[in-house]
Amino acid sequence: MSASIPNEVVPVLLILIGTIFSFLSAIGLMRLPDVYTRSHAASKSTTIGVLFILVGTFFFFLLEEHYFSIRLFLGIFFVFLTAPVASHVLIRSAYRSKAPLAKESVQDDLKEVLDREDNEPV
């Protein structure tokens, strides 16, 4: 049992770190003022968190059970690939559906572009 401690501990620590990231991002999601700022929390740190956890899981099974899971690997890849894109699409849609910016916001670069688009005859 004692010999296997390092094998186990590292992945589990990874998982714990990932969880903390997730938790932080969740707090961010709760506390931040508007949808755009929250997307930072939602996309970046959640992705980091989940990646830590998945990698931890991956290594846990690789080291502990000598099990190389192609699905898990594919999962890591897929989440890594899509999570940012999803966030991007979402925020774009939020902006286009005119979700309000927080009061603290100082700059809105796309405002003019969109206004112009809106005023164009269809």
Partner: peptide
């Protein structure tokens, strides 16, 4: 409304 471009999502979607 003009069609927004979908380049990012389309290329990711293909993969």
């Amino acid at each position: 409304m003009k069609e927004p471009n979908d380049i990012i999502i389309r290329s990711v979607a293909k993969v």
